[in-house]
Amino acid sequence: MNDFRYGPVEYYLVGFEGRHPDPSIFGALDDLIGAGTVRLLDVVVLAKSDDGEIEVFDLEAGEVPGVSELDPLAAGLAGDEDIEMLAELVPAGSSAAIVVLELAFARALAENLARAGGEVLRTDRIPAPVVNAMMDILEQEGE
């Protein structure tokens, strides 16, 4: 069996007000990268005008403060079709970042399972707000 070079990859669409994100947004991401929890494969920042026009910023040219310090491993992985599809979800007059992350812990899990003769057949994601709301309900019922 070959070692897994990459684990599962997830696209995150992170919305924010204004034309550019606050640099602290990417500082939080940098903490996870530094800890080895995720690897940053790509990041795209875009703005949607009030009339629906999409502008994609050139991050290498330093057009977005706080992003130029990030070093994506596969810049360009989020293709034009991905950007167009995700941009539809961004409200007019606001901005977003498309962040493509490899889940490093999941790579290790998939690799260890494969070594033992197993494989991940499917994963499902429950959004954090839903999990937290359900846990609050369960904790209240247990009191």
Rank of each mutant, 00 (worst) to 15 (best):
R107N: 02
V100C: 12
L138R: 15
V44L: 05
P127M: 09
Q140C: 01
A75R: 13
R107L: 02
D124S: 13
P91W: 12
R39A: 04
A110T: 08
V64T: 12
N132G: 12
E81V: 05
L41N: 02
F105R: 08
V56W: 00
R125H: 10
E69T: 15
L59K: 12
I33Q: 01
A74T: 01
D51A: 10
S49Y: 13
E60F: 07
D30S: 14
D124C: 03
V44T: 09
E141S: 02
L103S: 02
A28N: 04
M134D: 03
A87Q: 03
I54Y: 00
L121M: 09
G79V: 01
V120S: 02
G117S: 10
A92S: 15
A104N: 08
V56Y: 01
A116C: 04
D42V: 12
L101M: 07
E81N: 04
D31I: 14
E53S: 08
G142M: 11
A61T: 05
E84L: 06
V120T: 10
I137M: 00
G79Q: 01
A128R: 14
R125I: 12
E63T: 07
I126R: 06
D82E: 07
G52L: 09
L46G: 12
T123C: 02
A96S: 13
M135A: 14
L70I: 03
D82W: 01
A116L: 14
E81I: 01
A104Q: 07
V90A: 13
L109Q: 02
L41W: 13
A114Q: 10
A78K: 01
G76M: 04
E111Y: 01
R39P: 00
A110K: 00
I54L: 15
